[in-house]
Nucleic acid binder design. Structure first.
Lengths: 215, 215, 215, 215
DNA sequence: TATGAATGAGGGTTCATTCAT
DNA sequence: GATGAATGAACCCTCATTCAT
C-alpha cells in the first residue's frame, strides 16, 4: 500500500482526494497499465478498489474522465521539476560540462520515472488513440522540453562542447538515446540484470563520443 | 486500394487469401491501428470491409485470431530480409565500413517499415497486453536481431572500427538510436518536414562520433 | 399471478427475492417448460419478465445459473416433506397398513407435484443433458428416497405385509408404479377426465394385489 | 460402425439412403441424443458426418426436417412388429397365460429398444416441444398400442385370468410398469448390474400378483 | 456521499440456411 | 449431387452509465 500511496502523493500532492478516490485511482492505474484502458471495465476497477460501481461515476463523470485525471497530472510531474530545478541549475552554471548535466538529468528523472512507471505506460499507450491526450502531451511536454533542451544545447554549443548541428537534431538524438536507455532498462527488459551506474556511464559516453574508435 | 494491396502482398505473399479475406485484413489493420485492438469492434471491421460479420469468424476463429494473423507474418517480414540479405552481405565483406552497413540497413528497412507502418503500430501497441505476442516478439525478433547484430559488431570491433564495449551495450545503443530516428520520423512527428538523407546522415554520424566536439 | 406467486413461495420460501427476481424466475420457468432450456433465449425471458436483459445477468451469472437456481430448490422441496413428515409418521407407526401409507404418500405429494409441475418438467428434461444436475438428482433425491423407502419396506416385510423380495426391487416396482400414475395423470394425459380418488385406489390395489385374478 | 449400420437398417430398411445420408443420420442421432435437439448445431452434425454443411440441407430442408426423418420411422418400428407379430400370435392363442404374453412382449421389445435407445431418447425428449411430434406419437403409437392392448386385456379378462377393472386402467398399470422397468434398466440406471432374467420375472410377477403377501 | 440495482446498447460469437461453383 | 463461403439474425453476456435509496 505504501508504494501506491507514494505514487498517489507524487501525482496528486496538491489536490485533496478522499480515501475512496485514492483507492479508485490506484485500482485504475493498476488495471489500465496491466490490460490497457479499453480492455479495463469500470466494474473491475470498482471491485479492485473496494467501492461501489456508482462511486466511480460520482467522482469522474466518465471513464475517460478517470483516465484523464490520472494522466494529466503526470505531465506536470514529468516536466515540472525538470524545468524548475535542473534548468535553473544549468543556467546557474552548476553543470560546466555536458556530461555532468546529462548524468544529473538521467539520475534525477530515473527515480520519478520508476515510481510513475505504470502511469507512464498508460500515457504512452493511450497517446495514439486520445487526440486530446496527444495534443496535451505534444504542447505541454514535448514542445516545452524540446524548447528548453534546445536552449541548453545552444549554450553548450557556444561553449564549444557540442558539435555544430541544428539544435533540433541534437535534441532528437540525445533525447531518443536517453529514452531508449530508460525504456530498454525499465520497460522492455526489466528482468535482465543491469549495472545501472555502468550502463548510464556508457550511455553518456555514447552521446558524447559515439561508437567510432579514435585512432 | 493499391496502397493496401501492396501491404497485403508484402505481408501475405505466400498465402492465398480470398478477396473477402483481404478486405477483412485491410479493414482490421486500419481500425486496429486507428483505435486500438480492444476499442475496435468486429462489427465495425465487417462494415468497413463490406462483408457480413459472420464472414470474419468463418476465416478467423476469434477476434484475437484475426489480430495474430495480421501481426505474426509481420515478424517474419521485419526480420527476414535483414537476416538473409544484409547479414550475408556483411559476412561477405560487402560493407567495409560500419557507416556503409548502417546506411544500407536504414535504407533497406525504411521502405518496408513505411509500408507496414500501421501493422507495426498495432504490434507495438499490443505487445504489452498479449503475452503470446510478447514472447513471439522477444524470441523470434528481438533475440534474433540482437544475436546477429552482436556478431556483426564483434566483426567490426575486431577490425578496429568500433570501440571496445560489450557487444550487447553497443547493440542496444545503436539499435535504439536507429529506431529512435525511425519512430520520431514516421510515428511521432511524421507531419514535420524532414530532409531524410541529411537526417539519416546525422544519425549515422552520431552513432559513429557522438555529439562531443573534437578539439 | 397468484398461481405463480404460490409456486415461487413454495420453491424459494426462505430466500429473499426482489420483485424483479421473482418475475425473472416466473418467466424463465414458463419459457423453459414450454420450449425447453436450450430453445429459450434470455432475451425472451427478459421480455416476458418485463426487465432488461442485463438485469437477468446481474442476478444470475449465466443462463445455466438461472436454470440451476430454479431447479435446485425443487429437489429439497420434493424430498423434504417426504423425509421429514411421512417417514416419521411411519416410524411412529401411524400407518399400520401399507395401503394407508401409500395413500397418504400419494395424496401428500400430489399437491406439491401439481403446483411444481412446470419446474418438474424442466428438471426431467434437463437431467439427461446437465451432468451436474444428474448427479445432484441421483445423489440428493434418488438415493435418499430409495434408502428411506427401503427401510420402510423392510419394516412392512417384517410385519408380514409385503412379500419377500429384495427391497430394491420392491422399491423400484412401487415407485415406478406411483410415478407412472402421476406422470400419466398430470404430464402425459392431463386432458383426459380422471376420477382421481378411484384411480388412486386402483393404483394402490394394483401395487398390493397385482392384476391376476384370485380363484 | 456396424452398430450404427444396424440401427440405420432397422430404422430405414425400406428407404434408399445414399452413403452420405446414412452418415448424416448416424451423426445426427448421436448428437441429438447426447446434447438434445436444440443444443445440437447442424455444423456439428456435418463435421461428425464428414460432409459439407450444405449437404445436410440438400437432403433435409430444415433442421427440424432432419429430426422428423429420424424420429418418424421409429414410430412405425416401435409399433409395427408388435402389432403384426405378437398380436396375431395372441389371437392365435399362442399365449395361453398372461404371464407368457407379458414375457414374450418384454423379450421381444427389449432387443429393438436397446438398439434404438438413442432414437427413443430423442423422441421422448422432443415430444413435449414439437406439437407435430406429439400428435404423431399420440395418434400413431399411444392410441394404437392402447387399443390393441385393451383388446388383449379383454380377452384375458374373459378367460378369467385378469381382474375386472376397466381395460384402460389395466392397460395403464401394466404398460407403465413395463416401461418403468425398461426405463429404469436402460435409461436411468444402466450402470448398475442387472440380472435381467430375474428382474423380468419379478416385474411380471408383480403385475400378476402385486406386492401384498398372501396368507 | 455512497450505494448497487437497473438499464439497453453493443460486445464477440454461433446459428440455420442459401447459393454460386 | 456436393461443396463450403457467405450471410445476418440471434445468441449469451458485458458494458458504461443512471438514479432511487
Amino acid at each position: 500500500m505504501s508504494e501506491e500511496e507514494l505514487m498517489i502523493q507524487q501525482l496528486f500532492d496538491e489536490e485533496k482526494l478522499t480515501d475512496k478516490q485514492k483507492k479508485i485511482i490506484v485500482a485504475a492505474i493498476e488495471s489500465f497499465s496491466e490490460k490497457g484502458y479499453s480492455a479495463t471495465s469500470t466494474s473491475e476497477i470498482a471491485k479492485k478498489a473496494g467501492v461501489a460501481e456508482g462511486t466511480i461515476f460520482r467522482h469522474y463523470k466518465t471513464k475517460k474522465d478517470l483516465l484523464m485525471s490520472i494522466v494529466a497530472p503526470l505531465m506536470a510531474n514529468l516536466i515540472g521539476p525538470f524545468v524548475v530545478n535542473d534548468f535553473n541549475k544549468v543556467l546557474d552554471r552548476q553543470y560546466d560540462r555536458v556530461e555532468d548535466f546529462l548524468k544529473a538529468t538521467i539520475e534525477n528523472r530515473r527515480e520519478v520515472l520508476i515510481k510513475l512507471l505504470p502511469v507512464i505506460k498508460i500515457l504512452l499507450q493511450e497517446i495514439p488513440f486520445q487526440p486530446e491526450l496527444r495534443e496535451l502531451f505534444l504542447e505541454q511536454i514535448a514542445k516545452k522540453i524540446f524548447d528548453r533542451v534546445s536552449i541548453i544545447i545552444k549554450g553548450y554549443q557556444e561553449k564549444g562542447q557540442l558539435i555544430e548541428m541544428p539544435p533540433e537534431s541534437v535534441a532528437r538524438l540525445a533525447i531518443t538515446t536517453i529514452l531508449g536507455y530508460l525504456i530498454s532498462r525499465y520497460v522492455l527488459l526489466p528482468h535482465l540484470e543491469w549495472d545501472d551506474e555502468l550502463e548510464t556511464e556508457r550511455t553518456i559516453q555514447f552521446i558524447m563520443h559515439g561508437l567510432g574508435k579514435k585512432e
